[in-house]
Every structure is written in structure tokens, then in C-alpha cells.
Design a protein around this nucleic acid. Sequence first.
DNA 1: CACGACATACCGACCGGTTAGTCTGCGCGG
DNA 2: CCGCGCAGACTAACCGGTCGGTATGTCGTG
Lengths: 203, 203
Amino acid sequence: MTTRTATAGVTDSGGRPVPRRLLAAATRLFAERGYDRTSVQEIVEAAGVTKGALYHYFGSKDDLLHEVYGRVLRLQQERLDGFAGADAPVEQRLRAAAADVVVTTIENLDDTKIFFRSMHHLGPEKCKQVRAERRRYHERFRALVEEGQRTGVFSSATPADLVVDYHFGSVHHLGSWYRPDGALTPRQVADHLADLLMRALRP
Amino acid sequence: MTTRTATAGVTDSGGRPVPRRLLAAATRLFAERGYDRTSVQEIVEAAGVTKGALYHYFGSKDDLLHEVYGRVLRLQQERLDGFAGADAPVEQRLRAAAADVVVTTIENLDDTKIFFRSMHHLGPEKCKQVRAERRRYHERFRALVEEGQRTGVFSSATPADLVVDYHFGSVHHLGSWYRPDGALTPRQVADHLADLLMRALRP
DNA sequence: CACGACATACCGACCGGTTAGTCTGCGCGG
DNA sequence: CCGCGCAGACTAACCGGTCGGTATGTCGTG
């Protein structure tokens, strides 16, 4: 038997459930051409279904985007919490978290490209929700920097807020220059960027 | 008589020439709502003219965007060349350049927001031209880092390319978090970010 | 200075094409 | 035979761009 869930009918020739196929197609196309330049017609064609299917599972085109955001946001928050709450010196926790966000960003480069480029296409309500989650993430990261600054292992020359924005800026920017077929692996890039952050924070 | 250039007819109630008004309106609206979400009708209404006027001065909606890019690109390249070619130790030249790009980015925040968010809306030809200019800028900056690494005043732990992308990432990101009514002046932000770069480059 | 020829600056109605979203109905598993 | 999951035609709105027309100069010439 093929790999297929118990609820048949929700899958077909593609082998994967229709909602996932739609989300995957939308993610790829949004990352390639941007949200506005991608029509729902193109999405449903890429997923091998029709508009009826899309609007059966999603309320609107916005919903598709919001779903993409939700996935990557939840993933990164979860991982950050894991690293931040570990039992290790603060400089190791920050370094691990700073490197990990780079790796997961590169591994989900399509999602994150969309995230940073199309945020303003969301309706005001969903936009606020996303901003709030993003803010939580930011603050968790900042708390790590502040902890290191309080205990003296990091320099306090720069406000922690700015340090975090500095690092996330480079993460945000990855979609603009990182090429999977380039010379550096995600891990190597992550190590370099984390190094830069830690070196900037040396007392 | 009022302050009005010799070639009357090109100005009216606004007092400023129509092409400038169109460009200013387009810049503001593109930065606020994005390129695709701004209709040419909205642009001409904000500028107090009609579509006839817009297509009299500009070939297409793309042209408007390209013009915005050209302005900020020329400005920043010019300033970078000035700082890079100065007669001073390389660490002072890099620091000055790194801080200056932050200041000019903040001072033209609308333009740079558009730049990084809407680049992919340009046609392939204009897109290549913009990318080429951007690349020149990037390489000029990288040369400074490499010079410092060669002469031993900067650490060579991280490839110069990555260092430049790291810094430009934070610059790129400014439009997402810097608020003109915030606590920090552009100059203060620039000093902090340049500090972070220089500290990361310490041997 | 008078006057016709031409140029510039702009208006606003209009058009072909595209879009997100809706609605009706069909096939099939239970 | 019911209803879930989906097909696909349809629509109303909107968009970028075009075009004929007009008002206001400017300039060459006699």
C-alpha cells in the first residue's frame, strides 16, 4: 500500500493531502514572484487542483500567507526557547541560538523570504498578530543579551535592543544573498554570523 | 512675482514642478503600501494631477520605481566613494563609511524601504542594471574590509563578503524597526552599528 | 508688433485584460 | 442517498496604459 493517511479522498495523485500541496505551492510561488504577483489561479494549477479546493480549505489568499508565517514563526520560537532555556553559560546559549536561527532560516529560505518581503500584505488584524509573535521572539533573544551584559560577560557599550536588531538584520537579509548552490553550507554561514555577533559583544 | 522658474506651466498650485511631486507622492505611497498595492490613480491623486501628466513624464509605473532607486543608489555610491578614498587609516575610513550608510539610509528611509522590498517588481532589464550598481557598491565596501584584513588591523576570521553582508543586513533592516520619533537619533544609531562592526572586526 | 506654425503640459474618458472570490453542481465513499 | 471534497464557469471590480483633445506658451517671419 502507498503512504496515505486513513482519511482517503483528501489525497489524490500527488500522494500528499491537498491542503499541504496548496500551502507548498503557494510558498514556492510567493517566494519566487512575491505575493501580489502570484494569482490564486497559478497556485491551484501548481498544486494540481482548482479554486474550489483552495477556498474549501482556506478563507482567502491572505490566509495562505498567514499560514506560512505561522509555521515558520512557531518553529523558530520553539527552537529559541529550547536554546535559551538550556543549562549552560549565557554566552554559549546566545551563540547557539544565534547560529540556530541562521540555520533554520536558510533551511526554510522560501518561508522567510516571504515573511520579510510580504508582511505588509496582511490585513491589519493578522498583521498585528504576527507582529506580536515576532515581538515575543525578539524579546526572548534580547533577554539573553541583557543577561550577559548584566553578568559582565558581554560588553554593555551597545543597547541590547540594537544588538538584536543588528543580528536579525543579517538573518532577515539572508534571503537576498544566500544561494544554496554557493560555497558555504548553512552551518558554516551560521557559525560565521554567530562568531561576528559574539566578537562584537566581547567586553 | 512669486517664486517660479522661467519655464512656467511646469508648476502650479503646489509650487513644485509636477515630475517632482509625482515622484514624491509615489515614494511615499510605495513605502507605505508597497508597489503593487499602490495604483497609479492613487499616485496622481496624491500629486494633484491626472494620469495624463504621469505618462507625459514617465514611461511606465516601473519607471517611477526605477527613478527612486536611481536617486538613492547614486547618493550612496557617491558618499561611499568619498569616504573610501579619503586619506586616513583604513579603520577610520571603514568606520566612517559604515556609519554614513546608516545615516543616509535613515534620512531616506522611504526610498530604502522601497528599495529592499520592491526590487523584484522591476522588469528584468532594469533589475539587472540595479543589481549591477548595487554590486559595485558592495564590492567597494568589501575592498575596505579586505584591505584592513591584509594589513592586519582587522581579524581575518570571517570572509570579507560575509562581513559586508552582515553589516548591510542590519542597514537593510533599518526600515523595519527604526522609528523617527524614537529615542535614538540617526547619528546615534549609526555610531552604535558602526561600533558593532568595528568590534566584530577587532583582531 | 501681428500672426500663423509648432511645441509643451496636461486632462479625462476609455479599453483590454486580470483578479480575488462565489456559486452551482457533480462524483463517490459510507 | 446523503454529504464531503472538489470542479469550473462566472462576476464585479479594478488595473495599467492609451488616446484624442485643449490650453498655454514660444518662436520665426514680415
